[in-house]
């Protein structure tokens, strides 16, 4: 690891100020992604600005169906928050299956979505839940926030403060883990947002599989709006041309997994 300066931000304004003042700052949350990268000497920020000591930034609030999750809430906190489990068990369950206990007790939702790893779990949920990402500067919809592989709409010195969404009527996440890393090789979050009988509102977010990172599967949404059942997806095709291909899975295999996981998610969402 290269030498770096470590500081704790007192509050949001302090965090932004410290970031601006530094040569090449990086925000630090759980450090589960950033620290290994630094240890491998692949990242060399001059300053680390730790967000996790900002009071209240890890709060999870649920008011009726309205959910707000602070950016520094750990995966373990999301997985075990009783109120959240009640209104949106699919998200809690997603968090409960990220990495291992160590990762879940350090890693944060803000760090995960800011990192936008194409194999990370949360981004698919953000898309399917139609979440709003609240930064220290603005609010933007998840679909606008995730730009590409490891790329978000975040600008210099900007950081994620919280995310908010309305809990869906029902939803589920089905993940096929990479056999080695246990990140998603195909993770499909299906959320049924109600809507009207004639026009049910379904959103499907898919992670792990595509060359462009997390994406919204509109064709699946359409098929599911007509019939919210696994077999409704039989007619959908997943374009192999857009799929990632690596030693763990060819594009064809990933395309298959996307469909299989989508069906499993629909079955689980009921």
């Amino acid at each position: 690891m290269y030498e770096t300066n470590y500081t704790r931000a007192k509050d949001a304004a302090d965090a932004a100020k410290k970031s601006k003042a530094a040569d090449d700052a990086a925000y630090l949350s759980g450090g589960m992604t950033l620290l290994p990268t630094m240890k491998q000497r692949l990242a060399a920020p001059s300053d680390l600005i730790d967000l996790t000591h900002i009071k209240g930034m890890n709060a999870i609030t649920v008011s009726r169906k309205q959910v707000t999750i602070g950016a520094t809430a750990t995966h373990a906190e999301v997985a075990t928050n009783a109120k959240l489990m009640k209104v949106c068990p699919s998200l809690s369950s997603l968090a409960a299956h990220i990495g291992d206990p160590h990762v879940r007790n350090r890693g944060t939702i803000g760090g995960s979505i800011a990192n936008n790893d194409p194999a990370a779990d949360y981004p698919s949920a953000m898309i399917a839940l139609d979440a709003t990402i609240v930064t220290n500067k603005r609010k933007l919809k998840a679909e606008k926030f995730f730009v590409g592989l490891f790329e978000t709409a975040l600008k210099e010195d900007e950081f994620v403060k919280e995310i908010s969404f309305t809990a869906p009527k029902s939803g589920a996440y089905a993940k096929f883990p990479n056999p080695a890393s246990r990140y998603a090789m195909a993770g499909v979050f299906v959320a049924h947002h109600g809507g009207t009988k004639a026009k049910p509102e379904i959103r499907v977010g898919i992670t792990g599989a595509s060359q462009d990172g997390v994406y919204r599967a509109k064709d699946m949404e359409k098929a599911l709006a007509a019939n919210f059942a696994p077999e409704a997806l039989d007619g959908c095709t997943v374009d192999e041309g857009n799929m990632l291909s690596d030693i763990h899975g060819s594009a064809a295999y990933r395309a298959n997994l996307v469909k299989v996981m989508a069906k499993r998610a629909v079955a689980a969402a009921g």
Partner: peptide, 17 residues
């Protein structure tokens, strides 16, 4: 697994199961 250039692709627990 190696690639054709002799780089070990499964060179960490992220890729070597």
């Amino acid at each position: 697994t190696y690639d054709a250039d002799g780089q070990l692709l499964a060179a960490s627990y992220m890729d070597y199961q």
